[in-house]
């Protein structure tokens, strides 16, 4: 397999730049042709279904399902790590699959235990 350089990824950056080039004029054009009436301050209040907004917009909010977030941090890395193995599968000996199966077993046991605990204790 041929190696690749950072320059191979340049079209992604160009495309990102083209996205900017295509969307910024739309905003500028909209700003030029659209009306701007600023005499009614109520218009700029945050949306609260027609009521006067109460309290802070950016308040403390309970991040629910905390246990899942902790598990996500571990298993997202695991799933990306499996790609390194999946790509090299044709070029490694068959015996090398056994350690991966063992690794998956350990991870699955841990995940099952975490989900079991989260379910039993009612952790959000």
């Amino acid at each position: 397999m041929a190696g690749e350089t950072a320059a191979d990824f340049a079209p992604i950056l160009y495309m990102l730049g083209f996205g900017l080039v295509a969307s910024v004029p739309a905003l500028i054009l909209s700003r030029l042709v659209s009306p701007r009436r600023r005499y009614n301050p109520v218009k700029f209040l945050p949306m609260e279904c027609g009521q006067m907004p109460t309290g802070e917009g950016r308040s403390h909010f309970m991040m629910q399902y905390y246990a899942y977030i902790l598990m996500f941090v571990v298993f997202d890395v695991m799933s990306i790590f499996l790609y390194a193995w999946g790509t090299a599968l044709f070029s490694i000996p068959k015996a090398a699959t056994l350690p991966i199966i063992g690794f998956l077993g350990i991870m699955f046991a841990a995940m099952g235990y975490a989900l079991f605990l989260a379910g039993r204790k009612g952790i959000w």
Partner: peptide, 24 residues
């Protein structure tokens, strides 16, 4: 948001050799 969506499209091949960023 638009720029990131465009960056995803850059990686999608639509025909043989027709792809903006052909990365491994």
């Amino acid at each position: 948001f638009v720029a990131a969506a465009a960056a995803v499209v850059a990686l999608i091949p639509a025909a043989p050799t027709w792809v903006a960023a052909n990365v491994d």
